[in-house]
Write a protein that binds this DNA or RNA. Sequence first.
DNA 1: CGTTCTCTTGAGATCCCTCAACACCTGTGG
DNA 2: CCACAGGTGTTGAGGGATCTCAAGAGAACG
Lengths: 239, 239
Amino acid sequence: MTRSAPDTIAVVGTVAPWLDVDASSRIQLGHTVAATAERHLDSHEHLFLEGQRQSHVYIVLEGVVGLYKLVADGRRQITSFAYRGDMIGLDCPKVHGDSAEALCSVRVRAIPLGAIDKLIASEPGFGQTLLRIAAEEIADTRERLVSLGRKSAAEKVAGFLLRLMRRNAALGREGEILELPMKRTDIADFLGLTIETVSRNFTRLRTARVIGMRSTTEIEILDLERLRALADGEEARSD
Amino acid sequence: MTRSAPDTIAVVGTVAPWLDVDASSRIQLGHTVAATAERHLDSHEHLFLEGQRQSHVYIVLEGVVGLYKLVADGRRQITSFAYRGDMIGLDCPKVHGDSAEALCSVRVRAIPLGAIDKLIASEPGFGQTLLRIAAEEIADTRERLVSLGRKSAAEKVAGFLLRLMRRNAALGREGEILELPMKRTDIADFLGLTIETVSRNFTRLRTARVIGMRSTTEIEILDLERLRALADGEEARSD
DNA sequence: CGTTCTCTTGAGATCCCTCAACACCTGTGG
DNA sequence: CCACAGGTGTTGAGGGATCTCAAGAGAACG
């Protein structure tokens, strides 16, 4: 009865006992098994659209999926990026609250909703894990409310890079080079800015020697301390 | 479509079997009982502060609680308003992610975290209900991401009034008159605006005969259709 | 009947958006 | 190898929505 939880759940390891990211096409459900399917999406293909009836839950195996909502005149707000290990589509009632689009080549595992329900019913720890993950998702989304509501463009962009670093670290990809898996448009729609403003702030960070850019998608963090300070608004606009 | 999404965790009836809003100070936990305490807060008193270790979950019995986060230089973002029936503090694992302040005279029921854990363990339906509630909370918060990231001040204010109406309806308080339980400052920090901009948009709605204002806190909806249109940005800035 | 708090209204400043042009990259076809 | 087109990112100039600063108007309270 409960198809509940968030749209993007940071699974990364936590539900591995039940839904291993690298598992085969069948998952254990107590004493039964359920079939899951692997699906491939090219860049710009949609996994589902806002308003569609929900049938599956998805786990991202590879690539990045953007979840977004549209406003009347075409404005777009990306509500979440789903990376490898993230769960997508455990939306509340029966209908998807946002659209899901592949930002690059993407592989996902599709799990029928019924299988999730059965897992919750049969495996006590599973539901609790989902609950904890949902709580983290809530905390994270509230952090984004602060960014969207009360931060300047410079703070948003700096915070975005830090966020991406944390995400990479969680996936075991520490490193000097930060690979941006999405386009400027997506970053802009994630931060509530225009692409021009995003671009300008990248170059400001670059000329200030806070970051280096090997290409438009490869970013090197040169001064982590200042990046943190900029993200927190502790550093007034000096330039 | 109707989004019945709540502000915080809309308990309103859903967890009543376990945690009745009007229950006595003891709640059933399978075969045991746990003590809960009723707490009273005057306006501006805090229930907890961001960063404090979490000990209880709270249910609002009366009044409105504002949950907020602060940025370095004093900027504030209200992450959620908690009305009667809402649950507070299901966010994070051990530490509060935001501060909770009474916006008026408030009564809450404080439930020890341990009692929640026991309920989840002993009552299968309870955990599922919490999960569903958390999912609604996430869907609602994402709606707010759109508001903060992609809506104009006029759209935000109009949407805020509609939101409040829905909330009142969910509490069984339908009616022509909308009582604003919070101050302009709180509305501004909820919408990511300044109090001046909020005030200006209220007067614009009033002069456009969309709303009427008996006092600064009593608002009458005169033209619901236009209010909806304004909130969705379907009506370009005319005049 | 002051004091304080809140809300409103106005004028100017500012951050970001809009519009526009250009640079860069890639693939395609000549 | 070059020409060209389309997609993407950068940079500039100007304008507009919202913020900042400031003053005044109500309302609550002793």
